[in-house]
Simulated scan of single mutants.
Amino acid sequence: MNYFRLYIGDYQRDTAALTLAEHGAYLLMMQHFYATERPLPAGKALHRLLRCESKSERDAVDSVVARFWVQKEEGLVNERALEEFAKAGEISATNRAIALAREAKKRAHREHERSTNGARSVVDPCHEQSTNHNHNHNHQNPKPSTDPDGSVPLILGSCPEDAFKPPLSNTETARVRVAKSVPVTQATWLSYASAYIGRYGVEPVRNAKVNGQLKQLVGRLGAEEAPHVAAWYVAHNGQLYVRGKHPVDLLLRDCEGLRTEWARGQQITDHDARQVDRKQTNLNAFAPLIAEAEARERAKLLEPPDAKP
């Protein structure tokens, strides 16, 4: 689902005792749950998903989990949200039933009109032929009768079966279009956009280039992990990421490394990288001297002891 309803009165009543940090944890968890419609992970995996950086933030998440979420075999679920999922499914099924009933009524009406008009004049439009059942004196072919919508009645069996299939209603057409157009990147985009709005206060840009990059990202990381890595990336404080405002192209470029950081729950900042680089530089500079000293020590050990007089 792309949205959820927030009843302010109910929310304030049920969450009156929450701290500011706990409010943020609650809403972030609900956003992820509604976006993916899948149970949330627990423990450290949930802390990583919500980008917790301090003990107070982790404690806030754990407090919200204990009060509002239920641990199932598949993960954490929210009972109220599950009820909303069920209601949405029922509404969708009801709308579909209404649309099908309306279309069946239209189909029955069209069939009745065809049978009524066919008794007076039968025409085969597939072969552009007409049959005159009225033996009039001037032997002129009568004009074929038509349905109220202007279509010509058909002879059953003279045209392909598709000619008798009624068109889809607007509701059914829209449903088919939506079912075919739901991208595999939807959950990843929602996770990225939610984290982006939380950090920068504006929606990220989405265009054909971004869609293509997200598709590559899902292909490289998988649909399960890509949303988590995308949210982790937006919370990353790497200098290049922050300077570029966390664009999707850098996420795609470094996705495997970011996935490793997300799985370990540890960011590698530019400061950390410089420290590692300095350490390796020092090691490279002193390695020959260390090797030379070790060689001298080994040589001393191999020397025979001096002969005593």
Rank of each mutant, 00 (worst) to 15 (best):
F164D: 10
F164A: 09
P167H: 13
L168N: 11
S169V: 00
T171D: 11
T171H: 15
T173V: 00
R175N: 09
P183R: 07
T185I: 05
Q186Y: 06
T188R: 01
L190V: 02
L190D: 14
A193D: 12
A193R: 14
Y196C: 03
G198R: 04
R199C: 03
Y200T: 03
Y200S: 03
Y200L: 08
V202C: 09
P204Q: 06
V205D: 05
R206K: 13
R206T: 05
K209T: 15
N211G: 13
G212K: 06
Q213R: 11
K215I: 04
K215P: 01
Q216Y: 05
L217D: 11
L221P: 13
L221T: 06
L221M: 04
E225W: 00
H228S: 14
V229C: 05
A230Y: 12
A231F: 02
A231H: 07
A235K: 03
A235R: 04
H236N: 09
N237V: 10
L240V: 06
Y241E: 14
Y241I: 11
R243A: 15
R243Q: 13
G244L: 00
K245V: 11
V248W: 03
V248T: 07
D249E: 10
L252C: 05
L258F: 15
E261Y: 06
E261M: 09
Q267P: 01
T269G: 15
D270H: 09
